[in-house]
Structure formats: structure tokens, C-alpha cells
Design a protein around this nucleic acid. Structure first.
Lengths: 209, 209
DNA sequence: CGCTATTTTAAACACATGTTTGAACCGAGT
DNA sequence: ACTCGGTTCAAACATGTGTTTAAAATAGCG
């Protein structure tokens, strides 16, 4: 296993748990069992390492997700919102097959990236993978044509918040749920629970203000 | 204005913008125009300062919020979910009268606290202000009795995510919205938009899994 | 093998962090 | 006027950070 991969694996796991700001290069290289300088040699800087960690996921997620959303919109009958959000399930869970804990790690990283480091990850996402967002907006517009673009903008961000925040603390939440309700629970259960919620949220009746 | 207050004011604003990890004591004391050592003299440590900043809000928010929720539940006719979430509006906006940008600062801090510093703020909240949470759960249960406790647990956390995440990046979102849609927008507009969303989410049809 | 380009390594760098120290300062109270 | 508790201050402390350096080790190839 190459030094580069060892670093990416260690960084991925530590970033997910402690956040970007909260993880030092020394922790990463020590867990990866490589020299401290290797990060700057192979990636140039910590910021570039963060991008590399995210890209490894996004490069496999983004095309699958775009494809699923586009395909859903090709049907003659317009999709409903539950179908739109269900399109996320397969691409997200596929990350688990590529890598142990892939889905959970990715979603946690997404959550971290939105609050850590004054939103530079948001910029990175929207500029590097814009086709995902636009195909998503298209699907929602087909499913609920009465929504104005402004209302869609807000509700999509609310949804982003629901998902990203839930997932960034999913480990803690799953622990609590398992203890309180004596029921085996994992990340795919959480995803299945969140879909009706966000679908109903995006599909909420329009309220003139 | 006392040194203690000057520190709290500066810390509050900086924490909201840059997060807890991302704000140094030197930035705080320099903006507050007090000596660096004053923080440790008056508060003991950075962690205690964070708690003090949050408590200043929670001590005025918590009783008002609990009262509003309890009063809503006293009616003979059970409340609906929009009413439950609307109970948050007055107590939250009241923070603006106590202090410039109070509402927005507090909600941003709440968002930071959930992702920064490995969730110690979550622990602090649930242990120090539990009556808010339980009165909230009660209100939801009255409004939608078919929901199991487990489903309520998850949907309340989804809601927490929606609100907290949205608010922690509300400045950026408001900027985008103002640019894209040419419409004056502020924090109270965002609150009004998010209520139908979370009410619909919590009220989503139950999906057996 | 011998040479070269790539990779790894230990050490240092420059700087930022939270915290502590001990002296200086100030404002009442007797 | 003097003392004493509380407060402020500049300075230092110890540690942690991302990054750089230059030498050592390694791998690939003619």
C-alpha cells in the first residue's frame, strides 16, 4: 500500500471523527505510520490533503448520483419527492463497498467541511461538482413545480443541513438510539429514516410571507 | 463596561463567525481591548469561557421557551406542529432585544457547538437545560400522538440539524439569497421559512421499515 | 554494477496556542 | 496615610502547529 494511500486512509478517518481543524498532521502521519514530511511531499499542504480526501469520495459518488437523478427525470410521469431523495441511497451506500465505513465517513466529512474552515469546502464542492447540484434542483422542480426558485434554494439548504448535521454526529446518535430503544441501528437505517423527513420538508405547503 | 462583559461580547461575536476551535484567546482579548491574561483570570480557561458565553443566552432563552411550550400544551385542543415550532420564534427573536445580533449569534454558536469540540456542548446543553428538551418532546407528542418515541427522537434530531446547520451558515446563505433573488432578507425571514419545513418533516407520514 | 530520479527521514524552523507568573496598579476601608 | 483585596499588565512558559531543509535511503534503468 502506497504512502499516499496510507495517508489518505488515516486522514479520512481522523478528519471524520475530530474534524479538519481538530486533526494535526502529526496525528495523521503517526496513525498512517509514515514520516511527517510525507504529507507536504505528496500533497503540498494540509488544505490540499483535505481536498484529496474529499475528491476520492466525490469522484465515485458524483457521476452515480447525477446519473440516478437524470434517469429519474427522464420518465414521462414526474417523480415524487420521496423518489428524488431515494436516488441518493444507492450512490451513498455504494461508498461502503468501495471502502470500509465509506458512507458514514463521507457524510461525516461533509458535515465537518461545512462548519470547519470558514466554508472553503462549500466553495470547493459547488465549483468542482456543480452538475450534481443542478440535476438535483431539476429533479425537485419536476417533482414540485409550484415551488419558486427562491423557495427551492432555501429548502435545499435546509435539507443539506438536516443530512449533513445528522450524519456528522451519526455515531453519537446511533449510540443513544441503540441504548434507549434496544434496537440494532446503522447508517443505512438512519438514511431510510431521514428520507421521509426531508421529502416532507421540501414538499411542505407554500406559505406566503 | 466591565472587563468580563467586554470579553464575553468579543468572544460571542468571534466564536459565532470563526467557531470555537478557530478563535484564539489573543483574538478575543485584542478585540475586547483587554489583557490576554484576563480571560484566565475571570473565567479560568477557554472552555469555561465558552460555557459562559452560551449560558448568557440560555439563561434568558430557556425559561421563555419552556413557558411557551408548556402554555401551548395547556390548551384543551391539542396544538399542531406549526404552532409547536412557532413557539420558538418569540423567545429566539427576544434575544435580539437583549443584545445586538443576539438571535443570529446564538443560533450560529449552537451550530458551532455541535460540531466543534467533539460534542462537549451537546452534553452541556442536555445536562444543564433538560427541561427545554422534555417540554419540547411533550408538545410534539401532543401534536402528533401516533409518533413513537423512537421516531420522535430521530425527527427531533433531524430538526436540530436543520435549524442549527442553517443558522450556523445563515450569513453566507442570506448573502447568496440577497444577490440571487434581489430581496432583502434577514434572520427572522429565515426562521419563518424554516418553520413550515421542519413542521412538515416532523409531521411526515410514518414509514414502516 | 553505477547512475539518476524519486522517495523517505530526522531535524529544525517559525510561529501560534492556552496558561502561568509576579510585579504593578487601583480603590476602598480603617 | 496606609494597607489590603481585587484587578490589570507585560513577559515568559511549555507545548503544538504546518512547513521546510538537506542528507540518507531506495528504486528503476541502461
Amino acid at each position: 500500500m502506497s504512502t499516499k494511500t496510507k495517508i489518505l486512509d488515516a486522514a479520512e478517518q481522523l478528519f471524520a471523527v475530530r474534524g479538519f481543524n481538530g486533526t494535526s498532521l502529526r496525528e495523521i502521519t503517526s496513525q498512517a505510520e509514515v514520516n511527517l514530511a510525507a504529507v507536504n511531499y505528496h500533497f503540498g499542504s494540509k488544505k490540499e490533503l483535505i481536498k484529496a480526501v474529499m475528491s476520492r469520495f466525490l469522484d465515485v459518488l458524483s457521476p452515480r448520483l447525477t446519473l440516478a437523478l437524470v434517469k429519474l427525470c427522464e420518465d414521462e410521469t414526474p417523480p415524487n419527492l420521496v423518489e428524488v431523495f431515494s436516488s441518493f441511497v444507492e450512490p451513498l451506500l455504494h461508498l461502503n463497498e468501495v471502502k470500509e465505513n465509506g458512507t458514514s465517513n463521507f457524510l461525516q466529512l461533509l458535515g465537518r467541511g461545512y462548519t470547519d474552515s470558514q466554508g472553503f469546502l462549500r466553495w470547493f464542492l459547488t465549483t468542482t461538482y456543480p452538475e450534481v447540484i443542478s440535476s438535483f434542483v431539476n429533479a425537485v422542480q419536476k417533482a414540485y413545480p409550484e415551488l419558486t426558485r427562491e423557495e427551492i434554494f432555501w429548502r435545499l439548504h435546509f435539507t443539506m443541513g438536516t443530512v449533513v448535521f445528522t450524519m456528522s454526529s451519526s455515531d453519537a446518535l446511533i449510540d443513544i438510539a441503540v441504548n434507549d430503544f434496544d434496537k440494532q441501528t446503522d447508517i443505512s437505517d438512519v438514511i431510510k429514516r431521514v428520507i421521509p423527513y426531508v421529502a416532507a420538508g421540501v414538499g411542505a405547503p407554500i406559505n406566503k410571507i
